[in-house]
Design a binder for these strands. Structure first.
Length: 369
DNA sequence: TTCCAGGCTG
DNA sequence: CAGCCTGGAA
């Protein structure tokens, strides 16, 4: 019964495709936000950079990072010829650092495999690191006017509601992809895809859609159904994320502090952090810090002093940092490789994650206290 | 304070 | 399917 109704809705929507396109594009022409990567004609490289940054990240957050990034790496070749360590500082704080590694690798691949020109073909785009179905569709349609869909989270929600379906229901995704493929405007695919995303971001929002302002309200079976949206969960049905306890050691040498580089994969890939030692929840932190200190600086006489505590939450874990400080003499050299950095250098080099910036703030307030 | 949103990879 | 990160909303 439910399936039958869904099919009927889809069919009628497809017969209304010309109306959907017209209303959506008309609305987009009037209400689209002016964004630095939206140029006329579209800039292929700026589009590539923006699409990587916009994966899992909202426009407002991306804006300052995009501007800085484009000033430093204005062309695809300038990005490809830089080393990853020159690029990461411009991503530090934006999160999902694998995207930065992928973007850099994609730029290199485009230089190697496509003579430095971003490919038009969806398959060739998909073969680039960090480019999935959505990003390939977005670039092909926006930059090259190829009539393919680009279904991100926003579009998925808009189309599901347009079908009268719950966006979070299990089978929603493939149905939305099919509908998107049939709806996409053949003459203006890039604008059409961006219009759907813009609608999802500005009007058809997850929790409080502004149906009266929606250009598709007359066609939408979900209009004015905000009250039916599932309420926000109050008590966590799932267990809370795994908790990690860590002692971080800030080694201070004159005005400098010692940082180590994280591996190129996994958490905070390629970013820098203060040396740490994991410990059990009830471990004696002073002892763990002293142990870490002895391991890194066998000849240090000073004792590490507790500087504060930082809690940082990630998707699947919560990290508790106990921050310790130890001063060393000018000649001191830790037993592991790393880099010395000024305590609060205004630049972003070497790159620190948001978690490490919390530690930095902790150190600064401890130093001034 | 907790919850939620948001693409791609191995 | 788990892992990845942060900002903003509730």
């Amino acid at each position: 019964m439910q399936a039958h109704a869904t099919v009927r809705t889809t069919v009628s929507l497809e017969s209304a495709a010309p109306i959907v396109r017209r209303r959506l594009l008309r609305w987009y022409d009037r209400h689209r936000r002016e964004l630095p990567w939206r140029r006329n004609p579209p800039d292929p490289y700026a589009t590539l950079v923006s699409e990587f940054m916009l994966q899992q990240t909202q426009v407002k957050t991306v804006l300052p990072y995009f501007e800085r990034f484009m000033r430093r790496f204005p062309t695809l070749r300038s990005l490809a010829s830089a080393s990853i360590d020159d690029v990461l500082p411009f991503w530090a704080g934006l999160g999902y650092y694998r995207r930065c590694h992928h973007l850099h690798a994609a730029a290199c691949a485009i230089v190697d495999r496509h003579q430095g020109r971003i490919p038009k073909d969806v398959e060739a785009l998909r073969a680039l690191p960090g480019v999935g179905a959505y990003t390939a569709g977005a670039i092909a349609s926006i930059v090259f006017n190829v009539a393919v869909p680009a279904v991100d989270g926003n579009v998925c929600r808009v189309l599901a509601r347009l079908r009268g379906d719950d966006p979070k229901s299990a089978g929603s995704r493939p149905l939305n992809e099919m509908l998107a493929a049939r709806l996409v405007a053949p003459r203006r695919p890039g604008d059409f895809n961006q219009a759907l995303m813009e609608l999802g971001a500005l009007i058809c929002t997850p929790r409080s859609p502004d149906c009266p302002r929606c250009p598709l309200r007359a066609l939408c079976p979900s209009r004015d159904r905000t009250a039916a949206l599932p309420a926000r969960r109050k008590t966590p049905p799932s267990e809370s994320p795994r908790t990690l306890h860590v002692v971080a050691l800030a080694i201070l040498r004159k005005e400098q502090t010692f940082l180590v580089r994280r591996p190129d994969r996994g958490l905070w890939a390629g970013l820098y952090m203060w040396p740490t030692a994991e410990c059990l929840p009830h471990a004696d932190r002073d002892a763990v810090a002293l142990n870490l200190c002895r391991r890194l600086l066998p000849r240090a006489a000073a004792l590490p002093r507790h500087a504060g505590h930082v809690r940082h939450v990630l998707t699947h874990r919560t990290v508790h940092f106990d921050v310790y400080v130890v001063r060393v003499s000018v000649g001191a050299r830790p037993t592991i490789t790393g880099r010395w950095r000024l305590p609060t250098s205004p630049g972003t080099d070497p790159p620190l994650s948001t978690a490490q910036r919390k530690l930095e703030a902790c150190l600064v307030s401890h130093a001034s206290a």
